[in-house]
Design a binder for these strands. Structure first.
Ligand code: FES
Ligand code: FES
Lengths: 137, 137
DNA sequence: TTTAAATAATACATATAAGTAGTATTTAAA
DNA sequence: TTTAAATACTACTTATATGTATTATTTAAA
């Protein structure tokens, strides 16, 4: 019942970018600041840019920049870019289908909690996370 | 944000045992009924008996039996026997400490949801799961 | 047009969860 | 006391997530 490590790194790096308000960051700069493994972070950055959460500028003076406003980038967006988001909607007991029409014994109790959980991801944005504490990892 | 497969199998097998009200089940019997891989299920059964959720009788007329009443065996008990339960209490953003004294930016919003989640595991028992539908996997 | 500084892509390595196989031990009937 | 039927233990294999290394491509300055 956790976010993946990769998703957490992604949240962290975008939070950092938003907080420091620079237009463009190079990967090396972010590696330096956040102390995440060089190649790993670069791959995360590429993934995020493929999902248009950030945009990348290639070449000599390249780097990465946030596309939207921090308050428009939800935690959900980031998690969905990194993980298979479907699993957040699955049956808690592992049944194939999970719906009100095909409920398992725990569905009635589980579905509301799961909805809250998804709402939590949707209602919280980078703006909520880009505080000082978060960025002094 | 899922229970592990192994934990789900564990819930399933105990639910089956409780539902069918037999005193003793052999591993092969349970493998047959639940269509879970032979060796895998046996290992799960051993783990569960080590955690005293079921007890095992070795030798010729051996097998496995539930120790308590279905309504006393919580989903939490089973998950805790199979997984490292600590991770259910961790920080959603991955910080080392998670407490009201050392909160991350999302702690205030996350902690209540997490509590509900843990309560869900604690408030639901095998008695809630041991319905017919569940056992016609 | 060469070169340096950046991102992109691909392939490899490691750790953990999931699943399988084989051997050892226990027990009681034959 | 041998043997069959059960659980217990240990080691192996496979799949996925995590992390690393190498090479290719892009861009602009020198
Ligand atoms: S069917 Fe099981 S949680 Fe919805
Ligand atoms: S400190 Fe992050 S959720 Fe509690």
């Amino acid at each position: 019942m956790n976010l993946s490590n990769t998703a957490r790194y992604a949240i962290r790096v975008i939070s950092y970018m938003a907080y420091n308000k620079k237009e463009l960051y190079t990967a090396s700069e972010l590696v330096e600041a956040l102390q995440i493994s060089d190649k790993y972070l670069k791959r995360i950055l590429t993934t995020l840019s493929q999902h248009h959460i950030i945009r990348s500028i290639q070449g000599r003076h390249g780097g990465f920049a946030i596309t939207g406003r921090p308050e428009d980038i939800t935690i959900y967006d980031i998690v969905a870019a990194i993980e298979v988001i479907d699993k957040y909607y699955g049956c808690v007991l592992g049944f194939e289908v999970c719906s009100d029409e095909h409920p398992c014994a725990l569905h009635k109790k589980w579905a509301p909690i799961r909805d809250e959980l998804v709402q939590f991801l949707n209602n919280n944005t980078i703006a909520d996370v880009m505080t000082t504490e978060f960025n002094k990892f």
